[in-house]
Amino acid sequence: MSIDKSQVKKVAKLSRISLDDKNLDSLSNDLALILKFVEQLNKLDTNNVKPLNSIVDKSLEPRKDQVNDGKIKEEILKNSPDKNEDFFIVPKVVE
């Protein structure tokens, strides 16, 4: 498996990263190199191996159902590049 430019374009689209042609060329090369490197794993037979799902050997510890957060609208909106008193503002979305 190797990656071609059209695949990189698709992945960039999925990742929401704009790439100009120059960047597309050089990143495509990088990605192909990296993928070739990681494909070393194919030398290993892992058919009978269970994937690692968690590195910590315990179950999820839940919290109580209590309201103890929120009511920090100013703090939430403060850093936003575009907002008004109540909302985050983004360019128009068309569905």
Binding site: V67, D69, G70, K71, K73, I76, L77
Partner: peptide, 27 residues
């Protein structure tokens, strides 16, 4: 039906003022 959200402690009540029932986790 719960008081607080699935992964944070902010309220689930319907009809609150915009962005007042939001924690740092929710945002």
């Amino acid at each position: 039906v719960s008081e607080s959200k699935l992964f944070s402690g902010s309220s689930t009540k319907f009809g609150g003022k915009p962005n007042t029932q939001v924690s740092l986790v929710d945002s």
